[in-house]
């Protein structure tokens, strides 16, 4: 497994990186490289230019910005998993990071890289949806903000343009969240066969707001709107949770693969929505 040749640039400023992306065809942004490098080794991806953003200062911070937290483009899964700010305000994302691949991969792979790639078996996109994260994209054309709900288009396809870098994500504070999954080897490690990320806001004993996202279930992660609707306004009881879980795959084209039939995956989606909600509403 030997990658084909390519030009490599490692800019030390965002502007340089954006210029490099704008100035060449068939470029790829390299952050942690845990997906891109294996894909290049298998020659499934053959960029002519690789833009390594790891030497740009300031992209590897997790910061508290008042009503939201910010996770920079070069923040690794290991940091996302263990950072107190993420654990406090975006525990679904911390848990997703902690269950991604293995420690060695988590030491290199980045949260933003995983979101930008939007692989079917990624853990991060569902958490980003449930947490209502905002994606901050930059290019020589300027910057723009993309809501998580508008970001994940299809398998391996996000709303990013080829010349854009996902420079950071921001996650609003408030509510409680969690991420639960069944992995390929069983248990909660490895790629998800099905996973649920849930976020709820509870006030005065009733669920005032909720977002429920699933990943690994369809070709792209999605918000289970019907599940959230069933929950909001309820008392978060077992019945309300069961009702929410029953809508986990409404209107969704559920995937079949080596690890699950449509029926099993549909069932799992409900089970994991229920288990995740039981966690946050306990």
């Amino acid at each position: 497994m030997y990658p084909p040749n390519f030009d490599y640039v490692a800019p030390t400023s965002l502007d340089e990186a954006l210029a490099a992306l704008a100035g060449a065809e068939n470029t790829k942004v390299l952050s942690g490289g845990m997906s891109l490098i294996p894909l290049m080794k298998m020659r499934f991806v053959r960029p002519t230019t690789v833009v390594d953003i790891s030497r740009i200062p300031g992209l590897d911070d997790v910061t508290d910005d008042g009503d939201h937290i910010t996770i920079g483009a070069m923040v690794r899964h290991a940091t996302t998993a263990s950072h107190p700010l993420v654990q406090e305000h975006a525990s679904a994302l911390a848990e997703a990071a902690n269950g991604t691949a293995d420690l060695l991969v988590r030491n290199r792979g980045t949260t933003c890289g995983s979101l930008a790639l939007n692989a079917v078996a990624a853990d991060q996109p569902g958490a980003a949806l449930a947490l209502n994260a905002t994606m901050h994209a930059a290019s020589v054309r300027g910057t723009r903000e993309i809501a998580a709900a508008d970001f994940f288009l299809d398998a391996m396809t996000s709303a990013l343009a080829p010349d854009e870098i996902l420079t950071k994500i921001t996650i609003p504070k408030g509510g409680v969240s969690t991420y639960r999954k069944l992995g390929r080897r069983g248990g909660s490690s490895d790629y998800p066969i099905a996973a649920a990320a849930v976020w709820v806001d509870v006030s005065d004993g009733s669920v005032s707001d909720a977002r429920i996202a699933l990943n690994g279930v369809s070709s792209t992660p999605y918000l289970a709107v019907g599940s959230a609707e069933a929950l909001v306004g309820s008392d978060g009881s077992a019945d309300a949770i069961a009702s929410a879980a029953s809508h986990a795959t409404d209107g969704v084209n559920v995937l079949e693969d080596l690890y699950a039939t449509v029926a099993f995956r549909t069932h799992l989606a409900g089970v994991y929505v229920r288990r995740a909600l039981e966690d946050v509403l306990a």
């Binding site: 490599y8 390299l30 080794k41 790891s54 060695l104 991969v105």
Partner: peptide
């Protein structure tokens, strides 16, 4: 697996130029 700047990583998935 090797340790780069104190952190264990998989050296088959890292370019030499990234370790500059």
């Amino acid at each position: 697996t090797v340790i780069v700047d104190g952190i264990p990583i998989k050296s088959c998935s890292m370019l030499t130029v990234q370790a500059d």
